[in-house]
Design a protein around this nucleic acid. Sequence first.
DNA 1: TGCCAGGCCTTCC
DNA 2: GGAAGGCATGGC
Length: 292
Amino acid sequence: MYERLQFLPDGFIFEGLTPLNLKHMVFSGQAFRWEQKDKDSYVTVVKDRVIQGKQENDKLLVRLSALKDPLKDLAFVSNFFDLNTDYKNIEESLSQDPKLRQAVLYSSGNRIFKQDPWECIISYIISQNNSITNITRVIKRICKRYGPSLSYDGQKYYMFPRPEILADLKEIDLKECKAGYRCKYIIESSRKIADKEVDLEKIKEMQTSQAREELKKLPGVGDKVADCILLFAFQKYDSFPVDVWIKRAVEKLYFGGQKQKITTIQEFAAEKFKHMAGFVNQYLFLWARHNL
DNA sequence: TGCCAGGCCTTCC
DNA sequence: GGAAGGCATGGC
């Protein structure tokens, strides 16, 4: 929801975007391919395009490579940054819960990118039992080694490699990207996706629970990884991935600091937050990582 | 050194 | 159906 739009030769300026916090979005651990370019400017690669974003108060400046026609580019950008969703309403609504208010306030403007499903799946397979800095490094190595290169602003960037490419790798080669024991998951999951044994187009049309079971057919994808993929790539906002930070946050806010089983947290969130669970999750995650 | 990180898989009961 | 261990890598 923005108030005004300017067309640039290679991008757009969106004005009147509140709430928006690009820095939160970029470094909140939802996507792993953003880099800081200069002081307030960040760059990433989405499919075959380089995207540069910069925030000035309620303005979002976006430049991109591989220009098509302006309306298609506009649709692509506003979809990726989720600019047509009313986050003001979401944040106000969630803040009605006094236990959530501090987390929402702290994380305000942390919109959820709409990521490419294929890249998201492999990224979150890598994420298991791993740290955000290390996940970022591993993905970068994979793209640099196996992805087609792009040129933007005099610099080289890399696309995420296609499923067929990763599917044909030997484990011993992929190991050089330091994904460790997850390498065999990456290769086998890539093969299932390349062969359409797991069909990403069909998953888009499924209800959350069915989509979740379908994703879990991929090796290296369990409950938590599936929930991340559903939330970040399939817009299933009723999913609520529970990692150690979310667990801590929910235990502290809603269980008086008492340890709970993961299944208890999942059931609690589904019951309490319903179709808003995914948004709650994002606010809680960022808040917890910085404050707990 | 040991423990943790956006967990999953296998084994065993 | 659930508990326990193992697991690559890197930071603290």
